Simulated assay, not measured.
Amino acid sequence: MGLRKTIGPGLNTKAWSKPWVPDIRARPPRAAPQVGYPDPGALVYHFIHHDTKQWNVPLLNQFFQPEDVALILGLRPSRNRTLDGYAWNHSKSGLYTVKSGYDLIRGIKLDNTTSEMREPSITALLSQVWESQHARKNETLYVKARNNKIFNGKEISPEDTLLHARVEADCWRTANQPEDDGVEVGGSPGAPPTPISTSENRRIPICRIDASWIDHGPVSGLGWTLVDGGGTELVGQQGCRRSLSALHAEMDCLIWAMTVLRDRQISSIHIKTDCLDLVTMSETPEDWPLFVSELNSLDILRKSFLEFRLSHILRN
């Protein structure tokens, strides 16, 4: 229900029966209208060019619905022979968390009970309450529990109502905490930055990367600037197919920038990003199964440089 197959070479994932399409809830792809009877033995591998390890777009368009093709193109097939794996589809890293599991089950229950509710909709009211600066949502939970009992004949125990109220209150406090971008990688809040010695700071080219991503937008924007040892600045920008998420867009930008730098025969590079998650996943790739193919590509590219550094900078 919450797992999604991660696509490497696609050798051990059946295309029509396994949940590998990265939708809100992972699922198999939907057949295009012209497909009469999908081959149950077809593998995802058959939709990937074997030489370039890129998607065979004409074949995708021939067999799958356009909405699914757009989602599939956000996946990056692996260039090595590692088998396809599994990742939790409801967290940004792909690792299961109790909160994400609770949110999934709660969402499914809400979907199942929507058709049973006969009282007037309170969606607009809930949106106004959520935007308020004080946690009045607990009262909403009590009202919903009362309405379920009166209108739907469902009795929710006081203990369950209190549990929901506590969870909602914790989520509200977390959502309204100010972001703290002042923590450097490996540092602690308020600690002075570690000075960089002259030998470490010797005219290594510095590349700054950034990506733009809009939910439901058709494209992602990628950009980088490079300042070499002589002070010359180079700029790269491109629009590409929409990435699966903002974090995927940041990773796509990193991989693209490293590919360009490698092709320009730059042997030492210091890349700076305002995306702390990007730095974290490069240091602990085993904790990010949802990005296994991207991290494999990153590892291959890192070996192209004699010296490579990736660090976090504060967002301006």
Rank of each mutant, 00 (worst) to 15 (best):
Leu83Phe: 13
Leu83Val: 02
Gly85Leu: 04
Gly85Cys: 02
Tyr86Thr: 06
Ala87Leu: 00
Ala87Met: 03
Ala87Glu: 07
Ala87Ser: 08
Asn89Thr: 06
Asn89Arg: 02
His90Phe: 00
Ser91Trp: 00
Ser91Cys: 01
Ser91Pro: 08
Lys92Asn: 08
Lys92Pro: 15
Ser93Arg: 03
Ser93Phe: 03
Leu95Asn: 04
Thr97Gly: 01
Val98Arg: 13
Val98Asn: 08
Lys99Val: 08
Ser100Lys: 04
Ser100Cys: 03
Ser100Met: 05
Tyr102Ser: 11
Asp103Ser: 13
Asp103Thr: 07
Leu104Trp: 05
Leu104Ala: 08
Leu104Ser: 04
Leu104Pro: 00
Arg106Ala: 06
Gly107Asp: 07
Gly107Ile: 10
Ile108Ser: 05
Lys109Ser: 07
Lys109Trp: 10
Leu110Asn: 07
Asp111Glu: 06
Thr113Trp: 04
Thr113Cys: 00
Ser115Pro: 09
Ser115Val: 04
Ser115His: 03
Glu116Lys: 00
Met117Ala: 00
Arg118Trp: 01
Arg118Pro: 12
Pro120Ile: 00
Pro120Tyr: 02
Ile122Asp: 08
Ile122Arg: 08
Thr123Arg: 03
Thr123Pro: 00
Ala124Val: 07
Ser127Cys: 09
Val129Pro: 00
Val129Glu: 00
Trp130Tyr: 01
Trp130Met: 10
Ser132Val: 05
Ser132Cys: 04
Gln133Val: 09
Gln133Gly: 11
His134Tyr: 15
Asn138Lys: 12
Asn138His: 11
Glu139Val: 15
Glu139Trp: 13
Thr140Gln: 08
Thr140Arg: 03
Thr140Phe: 13
Leu141Trp: 03
Leu141Pro: 12
Leu141Glu: 07
Tyr142Val: 14
Tyr142Cys: 13
Val143Asp: 08
Lys144Asp: 12
Ala145His: 01
Ala145Gly: 09
Ala145Trp: 01
Arg146His: 10
Arg146Glu: 06
Lys149Gly: 09
Ile150Tyr: 01
Phe151Arg: 06
Asn152Tyr: 00
Gly153Val: 05
Glu155Cys: 04
Ile156Thr: 11
Ile156Asp: 04
Ile156Gln: 05
Ser157Thr: 10
Pro158Asp: 14
Glu159Arg: 07
Asp160Thr: 13
Thr161Leu: 09
Leu162Glu: 15
Leu162Ser: 15
Leu163Arg: 14
His164Phe: 05
His164Leu: 14
His164Val: 14
Arg166Cys: 15
Val167Arg: 09
Trp172Val: 05
Arg173Ala: 15
Thr174Ser: 14
Asn176Leu: 11
Gln177Cys: 10
Gln177Ser: 12
Gln177Met: 14
Glu179Lys: 09
Glu179Gln: 10
Asp181Asn: 12
Gly182Glu: 14
Val183Leu: 14
Val185Lys: 14
Val185Glu: 14
Gly187Ser: 14
Ser188Arg: 13
Gly190Met: 02
Ala191Arg: 12
Ala191Lys: 13
Pro193Asn: 02
Pro193Thr: 03
Thr194His: 09
Ile196Asp: 09
Ile196Pro: 05
Thr198Gly: 07
Ser199Asp: 11
Glu200Cys: 06
Asn201Asp: 13
Arg203Trp: 12
Ile204Trp: 01
Pro205Cys: 01
Pro205Gly: 03
Ile206Ala: 01
Ile206Pro: 12
Ile206Gly: 02
Ile206Asp: 01
Arg208Gln: 11
Ile209Trp: 00
Asp210Arg: 07
